[in-house]
Design a protein around this nucleic acid. Structure first.
Lengths: 212, 212
DNA sequence: AGCATAGCCGAACACCCTTTAGGCTACGCC
DNA sequence: GGCGTAGCCTAAAGGGTGTTCGGCTATGCT
């Protein structure tokens, strides 16, 4: 009756006026949906709390329009997490690339990850602790492990860490780092030691890399 | 109309016939509610998924009867977690008490915790990662930290670990152990190293306790 | 036997959600 | 200018939930 772009505007969310995308540009809405889902998941810190209606309200579109791009809610969450993880890995790669040697590179990569997690605690939780994670798995996460193993191996090859089982050392390191992040995110009010110092202890004691 | 203990029996849950508790025994229902909540939380692995109606169905009682003992849902979840934590600490104390020295005691305490967590992954998640945890906090959890610090300090005092900052070593250890448990629980299908061996590495490298 | 009261219940209010089915509209090629 | 179809919508089915309110019933003291 009233055309198209009038819509609701009865939201607390920042809701720009929406116009239908041009022909052939239908996938732009898909991106917008994923973007919004990522933002909301970071705030909600729980995939089960993300409702399609809320995502739709924030854009704003009709909730059912999401089904034009995703078969169900889980698929949207998974797409959002894939995008996040991609960004997370990229950040790590960039940080590692600027460093002079393998040890500094490994440290920088992990610091980048720590930094990202502390700036996006909600996304970190969804990425590691969510129900979707348990139900469907997130295969794309293996990349992160591989990068760490490679980093540790490179340190050993360069004589910056004592030779040994690189995979085991890498997993122990990741375990400790994950614990570190999880604790800080889940119990933010407790007096945790400075992140950098704790990380350096882990690098030194678990992998054998001396600081500096 | 039909008296009292007839009720539903239309549940999949094991639902014994319920009789109203005698006068003065009204608190027995409270225990039963907490018990049921604990069981369900272990399966659900998420406090937000615990519904009062579901708890009530499983007992079975009317959902509203829960409000006779708890002001709201959060209070029930918190009571359930307090009970769990108490049991967890007690297990650790018992395990530690049977050991000959401080180092074996510390190891046994943590192993008991690891064991409990692996047998009750859902409860572990609620205890460490839940929304209630973030909203209300769980002050009773400090006991666990104190026990670990004491254990590490005892090792140092007995010359079983190199003297140093016991609190820092204890926190690093707990961080790594938490990471260990979280990873195994959240990604059970990945090929994690044997728990005991990984724990012994953490004890050796982070605290300085040599195995055996 | 009477009856106050501890112990519990049913219905209802006011929300929230996912997903299905079918339909309108404006874009852009012809 | 016409019109097929991409792009998005409304309506509704069918389910959840926490919490409040008023009320029933068996108990056990008197």
């Amino acid at each position: 009756m009233f055309g198209y772009a009038g819509k609701a505007m009865e939201d607390t969310e920042t809701a720009a006026v929406r116009r239908r995308n041009a022909r052939g540009q239908g996938d732009r809405l898909r991106d917008e949906i994923v973007d919004t889902a990522v933002r909301m998941l970071d705030e909600l810190a729980d995939d089960e709390k993300l409702s399609l209606r809320a995502v739709a309200r924030a854009i704003p579109i009709a909730a059912t329009s999401i089904y034009l791009h995703f078969p169900d809610r889980d698929a949207l969450v998974l797409a959002a997490m894939a995008r996040c993880h991609e960004e997370l890995v990229r950040h790590g790669d960039e940080a590692a690339a600027t460093q002079p040697d393998a040890a500094a590179g490994l440290r920088a990569r992990i610091l980048a990850q720590v930094d990202w997690a502390q700036r996006h605690p909600g996304l970190y939780k969804v990425l590691h602790e969510s129900g979707v994670h348990r139900r469907l798995g997130m295969p794309f996460k293996e990349v992160m492990v591989a990068r760490t193993v490679d980093g540790v191996q490179a340190c050993m090859d360069a004589g910056l860490a004592p030779a040994g089982d690189a995979r085991q050392a890498a997993i122990d390191l990741r375990t400790a780092v994950n614990g570190m992040l999880a604790q800080r995110i889940n119990e933010p009010d407790l007096p945790w030691p400075p992140a950098r110092e704790q990380l350096d202890r882990f690098l030194a004691k678990l992998v054998g890399i001396s600081p500096r």
